[in-house]
């Protein structure tokens, strides 16, 4: 059994950031981001916020793009962008 451990690099984070901004991020990308967030003790934070706002999985957040609850979607989007920002700050502070 092989376990994929994504490598935390500034390029990988930037790639996810671009995908999120272009609305092309996949469930795998969000999952990777949640794994990266473990580095700043926020592992699983994105999925937790999605669940709190009515999206049980990453895929449901992507699929329910027509959901009229704009507040929840925007809230999660804000949480994701800030998490990425914190992660980038962490990488800069630690010269990674």
């Amino acid at each position: 059994m092989q376990i994929d451990n994504p490598l935390l690099t500034s390029e990988a984070v930037l790639e996810i950031k671009n995908k999120v901004q272009n609305n092309t991020a996949t469930a795998k990308d969000y999952e990777t981001l949640d794994t990266f967030l473990s580095a700043i003790s926020l592992g699983g934070y994105i999925l937790k916020q999605m669940r709190l706002n009515g999206f049980p999985t990453y895929q449901s957040f992507i699929n329910d793009s027509s959901k009229k609850d704009n507040f929840s979607r925007s809230y999660i989007y804000g949480a994701i962008t800030e998490a990425i920002s914190q992660l980038q700050n962490f990488l800069v502070e630690n010269n990674l």
Partner: peptide, 23 residues
């Protein structure tokens, strides 16, 4: 509404990151 929600999401995440840093 979208802007407010986005800002709220950012603030919540920032607070969460601060708490972890404190820990």
């Amino acid at each position: 509404e979208k802007q407010a929600a986005e800002q709220l999401g950012k603030i919540t995440t920032y607070v969460a990151s601060l708490e972890t840093k404190n820990q």
